[in-house]
Design a binder for these strands. Structure first.
Lengths: 236, 236
DNA sequence: CGGACGCTTGATCTTCTTCAATGCAAGTGG
DNA sequence: CCACTTGCATTGAAGAAGATCAAGCGTCCG
């Protein structure tokens, strides 16, 4: 336990604390309702964020990184012309906000109501100096993030709208392999900003998938995969 | 020295070994003409690759990672339909081929004739276990690569052709800040595959930059930046 | 010299974006 | 309970950016 559990995706805290009680969400980082003993020599606060609230902003100091207990988070960058690129979606068990610089290069926002553990730290150097075992964990995590970032580049560089959405659906299905039902927490706009497309194109492409009997749109946010193989064939 | 120099971009070996003597390049990983004492407890071979030769391929075992003494390397992925996405270009001093998995997920090829130091290893775990100081270096390196991968995603997701090329030129200029002259080692096709465009669009956009007096194309591969500010304004 | 290769340029076609309208479900207030 | 608002999603029509197809051009090198 102690340190190593920080980065393991499926520790027991995720399960026990995931249940949140109705309303009562806070709009700014407060409401620490329970503290974890986490091997950092101090207890770590659980913080809740309401949907669409900022967890940290571009330029904020990197005083903490986070682990999701429940909910979905988007990490994104805002451009001067108002557009937005979403770098990644993070779900229960994921660690995010872990950057080596003094300031965050990206923002993080709650897609849905969220509960996260907030790990305070004093920069990579300090952390690494005091604990080699943790270093190794964070290291693996960095390499994992790197792989995912590369895959994302690949998708954006090579794929057309159809391929991007196929890849996106498979990615979401992998995250939550409960039969073939995907519960999208994010809006079409979020998906568009993640895939470098427009809302309209996302919507049209999903509709086309449904006409082709590849998926079933039970509701806009609840999708049933009817033909995974067809999706895989699209990206190949 | 010893370990830390492995990942420092500007160590003295880069300079002394960069001079290669005309022809005589090998087509496969051989020709170790000098060995470095590198703190790994064994000497590290210098290997040379001729332009367009493969350094490692997708699916090859990750037995080594590399540091460039001279030349340019592209790290890329080939798609089933014959297309190619270039993930990154690496130049003198850069480390590449460093992956945590058992097999390489990408290929690496020499863009120009290259000389690289080849560091053999037995996986991240083993390396990390035996040397904490090295771990920290590799860790920083991973975080640096992650940042660059994220920037690349951002570019591919949000930018149009003009913005992608502007960013590319500035990136190249930063790498080799010798006045305002950029010596591109790579072909237009390489650039296109890096930016998710076609050769024609790359060529047209560069021509447009020249018409707008933003750059001067002294030759196809030698570009003079006449108005850096204008390029920066394009990406903003 | 001539062929190969890489680069540029033009004309056309496709795909995605943009603009605009409509639909649809949830929440609110009279 | 029903009108009304509001936010998100879908759909259509028009436009633009980039891809594709097709020549040409320059340069390097045998």
């Amino acid at each position: 336990m102690s340190i190593s559990h920080v980065l393991s995706a499926d520790d027991r805290f995720s399960a026990t604390q995931a249940t949140h009680s109705g309303r009562g969400w806070t709009t700014t980082p407060l409401s620490q309702d329970r503290r974890h003993q986490d091997g950092f020599g101090q207890s770590e606060p659980t913080v809740r964020f309401a949907a669409n609230n900022e967890i940290y902003g571009e330029g904020d100091e990197t005083q903490s990184f986070y682990k999701i207990l429940s909910g979905v988070v988007r990490v994104c960058k805002f451009l001067s012309d108002g557009r937005r690129q979403i770098d990644a979606f993070h779900m229960t068990g994921d660690v995010f906000g872990f950057e080596s610089g003094v300031k965050h290069r990206l923002s993080a926002e709650a897609v849905s109501d969220c509960a996260v553990i907030c790990y305070r730290w004093k920069g990579v150097a300090a952390l690494v100096a005091e604990d080699d075992r943790l270093t190794r964990h964070l290291f693996s995590h960095a390499m994992y993030c790197l792989e995912r970032a590369q895959e994302h580049s690949l998708l954006l560089g090579c794929g057309n709208a159809t391929q991007r959405l196929a890849a996106f659906l498979l990615e979401m299905a992998d995250r939550n392999p409960r039969d073939d039902i995907i519960n999208l927490t994010m809006t079409r706009q979020d998906i568009a900003d993640y895939l470098g497309l427009t809302v309209e194109t996302v919507s049209r492409t999903l509709s086309q998938f449904e006409r082709d009997a590849v998926i079933r749109l039970r509701t806009a946010r609840c999708i049933r995969l009817k033909n995974r193989a067809a999706l895989r064939r699209l990206i190949s």
